[in-house]
């Protein structure tokens, strides 16, 4: 069970309080009704699924209920950072392309 730092509660809490919410930094297209099939596929289905540092969303569903972002190494499952929704990706050491 992971131990996750909620950037809103500013506390480490056990994973049972959280729900994983998929890859982060995938914005819903502004004019979604007008985008191509290919763009829709990219937005809704395609995932980077990296082996290494993944940017992902979590929700502190049984806590403050906020969505936030995290950078986690998917090989070691170690969190490198968690940060609030809307904040840019943090700069991390050892990050791949």
């Amino acid at each position: 069970m992971l131990l996750i730092y909620c950037p809103y509660c500013e506390e480490e809490r056990p994973e049972l309080e959280f729900r994983h919410a998929g890859e982060a930094h995938i914005a819903r297209p502004e004019n979604i009704a007008g985008i191509s099939d290919e763009a829709f596929e990219r937005y809704f289905f395609i995932r980077s699924n990296p082996k290494g540092i993944a940017y992902e969303r979590w929700r502190h569903i049984h806590g403050c209920a906020r969505f936030f972002n995290a950078a986690r190494d998917t090989v070691s499952d170690r969190f490198l950072a968690t940060y609030r929704t809307g904040e840019p990706k943090p700069r991390l050491e050892g990050e791949g392309q």
Binding site: M1, E15, L16, R19, A54, E56
Partner: peptide, 13 residues
């Protein structure tokens, strides 16, 4: 587990 991972290990719960 609920999160993506390549660790080939999961949680006890």
């Amino acid at each position: 587990d609920q999160y993506t991972s390549y660790a080939q290990a999961g949680s006890l719960h």
